[in-house]
Write a protein that binds this DNA or RNA. Structure first.
Length: 371
DNA sequence: AACGCGGTCAACCGCCATGCC
DNA sequence: TGGCATGGCGGTTGACCGCGT
């Protein structure tokens, strides 16, 4: 049932806060009637979205353009998904909120068919309480009982955190000072952790990664269109590439620490977690740790970068400073060549970008042979 | 049946960024 | 360069609804 707000409840504040377009004439407020919806829907489907300020007049509505825009985006848009949030969506929202905070529009961009308003409401009315019940602070995503300690620690840490922007890559010697980690569950979603401010800003400024060009050529792969995070996508993609049957890329990254989302790059350093079950990729030391039943190797100082054009293949451009196995450093001919070409092994920027699907996969073969 | 209360969610408010003149 | 119009977004409000008493 559509009932408008009581007109006598308009306050001075309300009138002052209105856009100029709304002050020019007496405009309707409150809930939309089915007739209004029909008018707006017919107009937009016929003429498309253009200048919202002219929509009310052209569509024959006594509403301001803003109101029309909102009604279209939040309710009338044909691609909207209706109904309850799935468990997967719920997990994704929590994970994204952990990274993005209250940036509902950005979160909504990862959930096709969901609006920022819808997600915001869902968060405020449901997820927040759910997390609280689990003893997790919905703002920090950290255990409530440790909050005071964490806050104190954070204050101390802030003073000693170097700038990722200026250094280009995180300084692993300061790893203990960064209270940040990424935890990805088996679905590839973040389930915990926090970025520092510099990384967060870098990450948030990155354009949305469009996975569709890749999936167009990968029949049978679930595109998971909501997942636009490069790290998550790499986590998913690794399972698609199996350059060597002895080393399956089927594990998940876990518990990243000091993960740097610098300019078009993801560097993984100082990861804590190592769980060497069969066929796994984990973070370990400075880089990531790949294991299978027979062998273990550590790719040191691994970094992943992608181009601003958001092309999928560029996601797999990797940088290496060396490859280690449990017995010590072992390098493939390819790596030896790269390391000879680049004397300073700590200088990531000097290492060549290589496509995983081509040269890099060959490098993996070489590494595996050495192990 | 009436009332109170809490949850949900559509819609609005207010601010900011951007583009145009 | 400054002012204005507009779009976009996060925060907030308030109507509605269901449930318990």
């Amino acid at each position: 049932m559509y009932i408008g707000k009581k007109p006598d409840k308009q306050t001075k504040k309300e009138i002052m806060g209105r856009h100029s377009c709304c002050l020019k004439q007496k405009l309707r407020k409150g809930l939309w009637s089915p007739e209004e919806d029909e008018k707006l829907f017919n107009y937009i489907t016929r003429f498309g979205v253009g200048c919202w300020s002219s929509v009310p007049k052209l569509a024959g509505l006594q509403r301001c353009g803003k109101s029309c825009r909102l009604r279209w985006i939040n309710y009338l848009r044909p691609d909207l998904k209706r109904g309850m949030f799935s468990q997967q969506e719920e997990d994704l929202i929590i994970s994204l909120h952990e990274v993005l905070g209250n940036r509902w529009a950005q979160i909504a961009a990862q959930l096709p068919g969901r609006t920022d308003n819808e997600i915001k409401n869902f968060w405020n009315s449901c997820l927040k309480k759910k997390l609280m019940k689990q003893g997790i602070d919905p703002n920090t995503h950290k255990p409530l009982s440790n909050m005071e300690m964490k806050e104190e620690k954070n204050c101390a840490d802030k003073a000693s955190i170097p700038s990722f922007q200026s250094s280009g890559i995180a300084n692993s010697s300061n790893s203990a000072e960064f209270e940040q980690s990424f935890i990805l569950n088996d679905s590839g979603y973040y389930v915990g952790g926090e970025l520092n401010q510099a990384s967060r800003e870098h990450f948030l400024d990155k354009p949305i990664f469009d996975s569709s060009p890749f999936f167009d050529f990968q029949p049978g792969i679930d595109p998971i269109p909501s997942n636009s995070n490069p790290l998550l996508q790499f986590n998913q993609m690794q399972s698609q590439f199996e350059p060597n049957p002895n080393l399956e890329f089927s594990g998940s990254f876990t518990n990243f620490e000091q993960t740097d989302f610098s300019e078009n790059s993801v560097f993984m350093n100082e990861a804590k977690e190592t769980s060497s079950n069969s066929s796994n990729i984990n973070c370990h030391g400075r880089g990531f740790h790949m294991t299978n039943n027979d062998s273990t190797m550590l790719v040191e100082n691994a970094g992943f970068s992608w181009h601003s054009e958001n092309k999928f293949e560029s996601l797999f451009h990797c940088q290496f400073s060396g490859v280690k196995c449990e017995e010590g450093l072992k390098t493939s001919p390819w790596h030896e060549e790269q390391m000879q070409n680049h004397n300073n092994s700590d200088d990531f920027s000097s290492y060549p970008l290589t496509s995983l699907s081509e040269d890099l996969s060959a490098a993996y073969f070489d590494v595996i042979h050495h192990i």
